[in-house]
Nucleic acid binder design. Structure first.
Lengths: 231, 231
DNA sequence: ATATAGTGTGTATTTTTTACACTAAGTAAT
DNA sequence: ATTACTTAGTGTAAAAAATACACACTATAT
């Protein structure tokens, strides 16, 4: 099969920025490292790609091993390849992100002992992170902020049934600005990707809001349209 | 410095999708490979990252070595990491793109002998490419198509002085659709990033069009605005 | 019954997008 | 000089989308 490739004393890794929305706060998933370097530091869930697995597969596996979360679909957003980003050698890392639904009870239990724990931390209250993980997080946050402006991805973060106010709060958190209630509702409902349910919110000590659910089929159609362009 | 990293018999590479616009056609830069595997095949300019250089630096260096083009600023757009994308071993490649101005005379001369030549090929007329380079190209093309819809990047492809019709043609080629002349002009001029020159087009056998030039300062301002969001 | 807290709704204004067709200017050929 | 040819350059009306803005309703808790 021709010549062989040069040996290369370097490593690929994956780091994951996993967003969740809980109690009105946008959070990300962090682990506490249980290995040097940066032992006992907070870090994004991340580890080394195996030699015989694709990077997409590695992302899924690594997230599972470090947090116990299974089958989370992630998108790649940037590859960080500065020479000195890892103190022990050359490590190029491919960063992935995902937005997931916190069912409250999704318990996080590292399967590997490379992490001592995994927890959700509000993005506005992040601790110092290992390596260049602050940079990676920041870029991931920019990515979803940008993406939400042309694709209604916010649904991925909400429970299956949600109120319009919850949806609006989520947009406000991601975009970091207040939105007008009436205009927001008009726009969202106009997209035609929300299905109004017969149910109402429960357990609130004030007038309960209608619940909505998100219509995947119509969403897919809108998604396509989004990438087209007017005359 | 603590434990050492596992050895990993794998390689990082860079591949570049360089867009140019010439004679009304959108082109990309290809090389003819002078090495196995895929010797004598067409391929995107790409090669292996050195152990002690950042990937951004590698991209610039590799493009220079394979095409003779210097100091081209590129943006990363995707990392391809399937297990079998390279027949000789595990190669993960970071893909970069750039849009550049063809000054007609920019001669392409590979500096390394890994490529036997480098040429501009119309995107609508691409030959079969080595490895998974078709996939990489397609993704790069999608990237600029998407990007042009929110940032006026098309200028990077045009000569310093250009006519509105040329600009429109370029948009039409990238978006793959006809645009309305009056609406296009209205919109572009409204952005306020074009400076009308006193000069006219030369050497045409019909009424010569006014030349315009692109105003970088105002462009930067618009760029910022683009990422904000209405109420 | 009353206080409280969030729900839900409409309209007028401005801005942006779209659709659409003819005259003007320069060149080339006779 | 006339004519034919080719592209440049221009305006308006209509539709759609975005914005600004305030109050009555409803469920619950006390």
């Amino acid at each position: 099969m021709g010549t062989t490739l040069p040996k290369f004393d370097s490593v690929f890794s994956i780091d994951c920025v996993i967003f969740g929305f809980d109690e009105g706060e946008l959070k990300i998933l962090l682990i506490e490292r249980n290995e040097e370097p940066f032992k006992d530091w907070w870090a994004l869930p991340g580890y080394i790609v195996e030699q015989d697995e694709s990077i997409d597969h590695a992302a899924e596996r690594i997230l599972y091993e470090l947090t116990g979360l299974r089958g989370i679909y992630m998108d790649q957003f940037y590859t960080f390849g500065d020479v000195n980003r890892h103190p022990q050698g050359r490590v190029i890392t491919v960063a992935y992100y995902a937005m997931i639904r916190l069912n409250g009870s999704k318990d996080l239990k590292p399967v590997s002992n490379y992490a001592s724990k995994a927890v959700w931390i509000p993005v506005n209250d992040l601790p110092k992170l290992a390596f260049d993980h602050e940079k990676i997080f920041t870029r991931g946050f920019e990515k979803i902020r940008h993406k939400i402006s042309y694709q209604p991805i916010a649904f991925e973060l909400l429970p299956e049934k949600f109120t319009l106010t919850q949806l609006q709060h989520l947009y406000e958190v991601i975009l970091n600005k207040k939105l007008d209630k009436r205009n927001f509702r008009k726009k969202m409902l106009n997209y035609g990707i929300l299905k109004e349910l017969d149910e109402k919110q429960k357990g609130v000590s004030y007038r309960a809001a209608k619940l909505y659910k998100f219509d995947k089929r119509k969403y897919a159609r809108l998604f396509q349209k989004e990438l087209t362009f007017g005359k």
